[in-house]
Design a protein around this nucleic acid. Structure first.
Length: 832
DNA sequence: CCGTGGGGGGTCTAG
DNA sequence: CCCCCCACGG
């Protein structure tokens, strides 16, 4: 039995009242509208806009594409546009569909619309992320997807465990066919909106000896019996429902008078299909009032299926669309904008925008480029710089460090801990991904949704109650035999003699507890119930008895969990929230440096920004280059652009000549992106003392060069002429050349992070002049026909013999007899 | 049934 | 290097 009543009204409570907005209770917009009765409509909110922004706000009818560069007031336009639609009486709040990508963006929009129009935001039920709106649609029409409206949303962890079970059930070796990899494939298919029967034959064959499609089907079936969906389904199910049920679609067409999309450049194919379905009006000449806002230069989610193409072809998709460019930047100095614009100009395939600022101060500092010996040095120097700023009264809240990869954060954290400098990690290990939170949530889930077998499995022996693998298998057997949920199976099992007395008694207690909690669900305040569950299950007890260092923190987190439940009206609402959201705890009041990845920095701004790790292989990231070729490089460049444009005033770029990657110290080359910065806006910083702190050949850190290449740098002043810089340049060119050499057929392979030769090792051979990176990477995606074909028997130096199972450009997917499935470059295999 | 240690593999990045 | 998984022994 589901714990959720199926008749909760999530949908109809927001039907517009039969009276026009101006006649509603005099609050919020209505108040404004009424106040305006005497003298025309109150449109003071328009006064804060520049002409382009104002055009974007007032062009309410028909399709509109707003190309909004970084810092040009994109959010202001979106929120003001909504406010304008509301205040001018064009639509009710519930008739506006506004989608964002992140919960943070959705939250921010709600707040800002709130300040514009008053407190009427309760009535914006369709403002949210693609996923949260997907949930809403799916809950309403769950039965059309073969689900009950109480379905649970699995997170990545659950998803992988489920896939693992399915792979094992097929009798396959989950070592050879990693569930994780398959989960990514499924994700990829769902990003394209593909059901099992729609996936390309090649894809289907690429996994588990051709069982890809079968496994995908089995996975979907399993989800259905679990009454569960994964993230991808939150888009795919609604698409199918809207596509297959014209009456339902027509309903939404009537409902949504205006559609707004934030970050349109990040939409994937499924999201695009979803939007098209809702925006298209087949039997009507009425214009489609869709407004997409985005910036092709800030498209940084290609790796998870985003199609920049969606924004590039907007005008084709929506004929007669108005395209409005916002290029007036309010955020950054001219140096920062100059650097960013110059860098991004290296990309092809842009819609083209040039940011400018009218604000210019001769005292504005140029962008500074710094060199460090290694990553520890980098962290130390940045720490010192921040301390210096702090002592000059600079708020830590105004400082951010943006890294390419999360492993870079650790050194900064370590450093800040020793310095006693406050910092906060944004988007770090997420609150709800923590062990104790996931456990607690599993308890809540099984109570709210009895069919949630994954939740049951997770907690059946947590805390330890003597129900080990043997008992769990017994429960599983019964469940399969009776086609019942694990909980039902467990209930059946305790009534028999099949289990030994001890596990049976403890299973009985558990089942009875769960049933009792379930029966209380509707009549007990949910926070109270949640506390009760954690107490009576022995879960909090378990951590109280745990003497490890983390235990107190975990208890604290559990308290925090209960506390955060108070904001929600029911356990159900809360579970949904957690499945979709739950960013880490925010301590806004604390003055602290922000530490995050470049990806999570999009949309933010800080007066002072540090961008460490500008080295080849890290930024641009090797994997992006290997897997994405030229377009991968361009995406990395856009990421760099995003990073640069986060800064308002002070911008510091760093590279370290040595970095530890998976435990090994490797020497590195400055990022090619540093070369793409305009000298007019950049200073190479002279470090007064940052090299004094380490000594050459310090224990535990062998110095491959004997003497630091930067030892004598400080003799020279700010210029690209320092020997360190020049040597770094030379080093870079040489090594790029070596990579080039390698790629055309020598030892290097970069499958995962393994032991593969870094490619930056001993030099050999050289190519004169500067290697143009575009051509270098373009090779790996060239579509020239492979010399191999599917089914060929091949030999690889490292992995041995195998069969080609898929070909993509010059990359082959090969099922090796011993090593399993790998993707390798064609140059590394020869016919067997 | 549960804890430990060896071995192998590998997280860039949302929801 | 670090984490996860599995085999093994108590």
């Amino acid at each position: 039995m589901s714990g959720f009543p199926d008749d909760i009204p999530f949908f109809d409570e927001d039907e517009p009242a039969p009276t026009p907005p101006a006649a509603q209770k005099p609050s919020g917009i209505a108040a404004r509208a009424m106040a305006a009765r005497t003298g025309g409509p109150d449109t003071r909110y328009l006064d804060a806009l520049n002409p382009e922004q104002r055009l974007a706000v007032e062009t309410t009818e028909g399709p509109v594409l707003v190309l909004a560069g970084a810092g040009t007031g994109k959010t202001r336009v979106l929120t003001t546009r909504i406010a304008h639609i509301l205040a001018s009486g064009r639509a009710y709040p519930s008739q506006i569909l506004a989608v964002t990508f992140t919960n943070k963006a959705a939250r921010e929009m709600k707040v800002r619309i709130g300040t514009l129009v008053g407190e009427a935001i309760e009535g914006m039920p369709w403002l949210g992320t693609f996923h949260s709106i997907g949930v809403k649609i799916l809950r309403k029409h769950a039965e059309l997807a073969g689900l009950k409206s109480s379905f649970t949303i699995l997170d990545t962890d659950d998803q992988i465990r489920l896939i693992k079970q399915i792979i094992q059930a097929e009798g396959l070796d989950d070592k050879r066919w990693p569930p994780r990899q398959f989960a990514q494939m499924i994700d990829g298919w769902k990003n394209k909106g593909l059901a099992p029967k729609e996936i390309p034959e090649g894809d289907a064959r690429a996994f588990a000896n051709g069982k890809g499609r079968e496994l995908y089907t089995a996975y979907q079936n399993r989800l259905k019996t679990l009454n569960a969906v994964d993230f991808g389904d939150l888009l795919c199910h609604p698409i199918r429902i809207l596509r297959d049920h014209p009456d339902v679609l027509a309903d939404y067409h009537r409902r949504f008078k205006y559609i707004l999309v934030d970050e349109y450049q990040d939409t994937n194919t499924a999201q695009y299909m979803w939007l098209r379905l809702l925006a298209q009006r087949p039997r009507s000449t009425e214009p489609v009032n869709i407004c997409c806002v985005g910036d092709d230069d800030q498209s940084i989610y290609g790796w998870r299926g985003a199609e920049v193409d969606n924004i590039l072809r907007f005008e084709k998709d929506f004929p007669g669309a108005a395209v409005i460019r916002l290029e007036r930047n309010y955020r950054s100095t001219k140096h920062i904008l100059g650097a960013a614009s110059h860098l991004i100009a290296n990309n092809e395939g842009r819609l083209g925008k040039t940011l400018f600022t009218e604000h210019s101060d001769p005292d504005d500092p140029k962008v500074k480029v710094h060199a460090a010996w290694d990553s520890e040095e980098e962290a130390r120097a940045v720490g010192e710089e921040i301390e210096a700023l702090q002592s000059k009264g600079h708020a830590l809240n105004d400082i951010a460090i943006l890294v390419r990869a999360s492993f870079q954060m650790r050194e900064f954290e370590d450093r800040f801990v020793t310095l006693g400098l406050n910092y906060r990690v944004i988007g770090g290990p997420r609150f709800y991904e923590r062990l104790e939170i996931r456990d607690a949530m599993a308890y809540f889930r099984i109570v709210a949704q009895a069919a949630d077998d994954l939740a049951f499995e997770r907690i059946v022996n947590v805390p330890k109650r003597g129900l080990g693998e043997a008992s769990v298998r017994q429960i599983h057997d019964v469940s399969r035999m009776r086609e019942a949920t694990l909980l039902q199976a467990a209930r059946d099992l305790v009534g028999t003699e099949e289990m030994k007395p001890k596990p049976r008694a403890s299973l009985r207690t558990l089942v009875e507890n769960i049933e009792r909690w379930q029966s209380m669900l509707d009549r007990t305040p949910h926070t109270e119930l949640a506390e009760m569950i954690l107490e009576e299950s022995g879960y909090t007890e378990m951590w109280k008895n745990d003497r490890s260092a983390e235990a107190p923190g975990r208890l604290e987190n559990l308290k925090e969990l209960i506390r955060s439940m108070e904001e929600y009206e029911s356990l159900r609402g809360f579970l949904e929230h957690v499945a979709l959201v739950m960013d880490a705890e925010r301590h806004e009041e604390l003055d602290a440096v922000s530490l995050m990845t470049l990806h999570s920095a999009k949309g933010l701004e800080f007066p002072t920004v540090f961008l460490p790790g500008w080295e080849e292989g890290l930024f641009p990231h090797q994997r992006a280059l290997d897997e994405g070729g030229r377009s991968g490089l361009e995406e990395e460049r856009r990421l760099a652009y995003v990073g640069l444009t986060r800064a308002k005033k002070n911008l510091h770029l760093w590279f370290a000549s040595n970095r530890r990657i998976h435990g090994l110290w490797q020497s590195t080359i400055p990022s090619r992106f540093l070369d793409e910065l305009p000298e007019a806006h950049v200073d190479v910083a002279e470090e007064s003392n940052s090299y004094g702190g380490y000594s050459v050949g310090q224990p535990g850190r062998p110095n491959p060069y004997g003497k630091s290449r930067f030892d004598d740098q400080s003799v020279f002043s700010n210029s690209y002429a320092t020997p360190g810089w020049q040597r770094a340049q030379k080093n870079r060119t040489d090594a790029t050349a070596r990579n080039w050499g390698n790629r055309s057929g020598h030892q290097v392979e970069r499958i995962g992070y393994g032991e593969a030769d870094s490619g930056y090792g001993a030099g050999r051979g050289s190519v004169k002049g500067r290697v143009i990176e575009g051509e270098l990477v373009a090779r790996s995606v060239s579509e020239k026909p492979s010399t191999f074909k599917v089914g060929d028997r091949v030999f690889h130096m490292k992995f041995g013999n195998g069969n080609v199972s898929a070909i993509e450009g010059n990359k082959l997917t090969i099922d090796f007899d011993k090593a399993g499935q790998k993707r390798v470059l064609e140059g590394f295999v020869k016919p067997a």
